[in-house]
């Protein structure tokens, strides 16, 4: 395999660990940084588990169409998705990764799990996935900027924080962009790429190239809180929570309607459980603050569930119960 550039991944939570895994599967050496040892340990376990089942999840053994079939169901109208999806998951992730050819150990070995930011000096791209909290993110960029190579690109993986604001916290605004990865990262063929006010065309080209190398197609959108996907999704999720809050419907029935009537593979409340209710709440709070528009007001039930520690899949309980192991 050709030598692939080092990728830095900061934040080893739900999404950061998947981003690290995906780059490692495509052959990149990856430095995965978190402030918590437990988060790093959890990331190692979940990556290892994911790699074990990757071939099955990507549909490897039933032929190259399998992975795209589920994806196609999720994006029925996406004409551009078909070629991208066919290249995704299967091509780079399939042959370079986890599945048939390579052992789990080989992929895991490519990932350095550490609390130390220093090794990021080697990285050509740093994908930042720390908690959705501007003060925390700002602190991270203030440390990264002097430490990383001049040519290093910073990709902000955020649900609603404007990329231009993040870029302003660095001295390299032209090399900062948004990469909004979708959960589960190893299987999703597309990334919403966000062009900040100062993001240069060269940065976007390089980002597209790096993403193509891990089997992902980029759709570039301009910088506005929530971009396209989260702005629309979070409103939908919030409204779904309101219907439960107001006893209009049980959670199961809300989801059944979306699946049965609209052909969505998952309903909005299952999706919320998958994303994490705390992350959903932070996103809504962020949209509310950014647009100063009351239509983003988080449903009180959502806030209460988060206060009660019912965070969805990651805590074992959200709108549904998930047996913990």
């Amino acid at each position: 395999m050709v030598n692939r550039p080092v990728i830095g991944v900061v934040g080893a939570g739900v999404i950061g660990s998947q981003v690290a895994q995906t780059f490692a599967q495509a052959g990149h050496p990856v430095v995965l940084v978190d402030v918590h040892d437990e988060a790093l340990e959890r990331a190692r376990r979940s990556i290892s588990r994911d790699l074990r089942f990757h071939r099955m999840l990507a549909g490897g053994s039933t032929g190259p169409g399998a992975a795209t079939k589920t994806q196609a169901a999720k994006t029925p109208a996406a004409k551009g998705a078909a070629p991208g999806a066919a290249a995704a998951g299967n091509a780079p992730a399939g042959n370079a990764a986890g599945g048939e050819g390579e052992s789990r150990a080989a992929v895991l070995e490519r990932i350095t799990f550490t609390r130390d930011l220093a090794p990021l000096a080697e990285a050509e791209l740093v994908v930042e996935n720390v908690v959705e909290d501007w003060e925390v993110k700002r602190g991270v960029y203030e440390k990264l900027d002097p430490l990383c190579a001049d040519g290093c690109l910073f990709a902000v993986n955020t649900s609603v924080i404007p990329i231009t604001r993040v870029a302003a916290a660095t001295g390299r605004a032209d090399r900062v962009l948004g990469m909004h990865f979708m959960n589960p990262v190893p299987l999703k063929p597309m990334v919403e790429v966000v062009r900040g006010h100062h993001t240069s065309p060269g940065t976007l080209d390089r980002a597209r190239e790096l993403l193509a190398g891990i089997g992902k197609e980029a759709v570039v959108v301009a910088d506005a809180a929530g971009f396209v996907s989260n702005r629309v999704l979070m409103l939908t999720v919030n409204e779904a929570v309101f219907t439960v809050h107001e006893n209009v419907s049980a959670a199961e029935d809300v989801d059944r309607l979306f699946k049965g009537c609209f052909g969505h593979p998952m309903g909005p409340l299952e999706t919320a459980d998958l994303i994490g209710l705390d992350t959903v709440l932070l996103s809504l709070d962020g949209l509310y603050a950014e647009f100063a528009d009351s239509k983003y007001r988080p449903c009180p039930l959502l806030r209460r569930m988060v206060d009660a520690g019912l965070l969805g899949r990651k805590s074992g309980q959200g709108f549904y119960t998930y047996p913990q192991i």
């Binding site: 549909g59 699946k259 899949r313």
Partner: peptide, 9 residues
Amino acid sequence: FETGYVNSL
């Protein structure tokens, strides 16, 4: 695998 529920967990 087409239900949307399947993940590694």
